[in-house]
């Protein structure tokens, strides 16, 4: 677990309304990666309070897409960011860094990139940056549909698992950002290339992050 995730875990462990460490909170608000990490921990906590039901029949994608549209419509108006934040069930959040995150990151990374319209004649890669404040607003307003968050959640687990010979990139120590980047690249490569290697590329994706 890296320092940032340790702070978040510690924060969640020790949380009461009076003992938040202000600097950690400030850091959190300035870093969408950490916010996403925190929200993942929250979801893990929520998962601990649910029993998995028996399998169901589903016309899968239409159901999910329909629900997304409904939720989007619901969130479109009168969203109070403060209210969204305060509905987080902090007391249930535990530092289960990466329990579910490692496995998910690779495929989450598939969706890392937003599409853009290509303008004929454009040359070098452009660069544009959304303001930090705008990112905060976007993140809050879009709860619980988490739009445009970075695929950053593999960091802690990758480091933890490396000693276990898990399936991870052999990257320079303390370069989690690089590993994250490579994950995203691998998934996009797998999705868009035409390797004739049977099921191996897909198994590689599904198996990423699994421990030995």
């Amino acid at each position: 677990m890296n320092d940032e995730k340790q702070k978040i875990s510690h924060l969640l462990d020790e949380y009461s309304s009076n003992n938040f460490e202000k600097k950690t909170i400030d850091d959190l608000l300035d870093d969408v990666n950490q916010q996403y990490c925190l929200s993942r921990y929250q979801m893990i906590g929520q998962a601990m309070r649910h029993e998995l039901p028996n399998k169901i029949d589903t016309g899968f994608s239409p159901v999910v897409m329909s629900r997304i549209r409904q939720t989007e419509a619901k969130n479109k108006f009168n969203v109070d960011p403060k209210k969204v934040v305060t509905t987080w069930r902090w007391e249930f959040l535990k530092p289960l860094a990466g329990m579910a995150v490692a496995a998910s990151v690779a495929i989450i990374s598939i969706t890392l990139w937003q599409s853009v319209s290509f303008t004929p004649g454009s040359t070098a890669p452009d660069a544009s940056f959304a303001s930090v404040e705008q990112k905060k607003i976007d993140l809050l307003v879009n709860q619980p549909i988490q739009v445009a968050v970075p695929a950053s959640t593999t960091l802690g687990t990758a480091k933890r698992n490396r000693n276990n010979n898990g399936m991870h990139w052999k990257v320079i120590r303390d370069a989690p950002g690089l590993e994250r980047k490579l994950n995203a690249y691998l998934i996009n490569h797998t999705e868009y290339s035409k390797s004739m290697q049977g099921l191996i590329p897909q198994a590689r994706v599904a198996g990423y992050g699994a421990e030995k």
């Binding site: 969408v32 990666n33 890392l112 990139w113 937003q114 599409s115 853009v116 290509f118 890669p125 452009d126 660069a127 544009s128 940056f129 959304a130 739009v147 445009a148 968050v149 970075p150 950053s152």
Partner: peptide
């Protein structure tokens, strides 16, 4: 060509 959501970089 894609845009990275988190950074706006292409």
């Amino acid at each position: 060509k894609r845009e990275v959501s988190a950074t706006g970089l292409y």
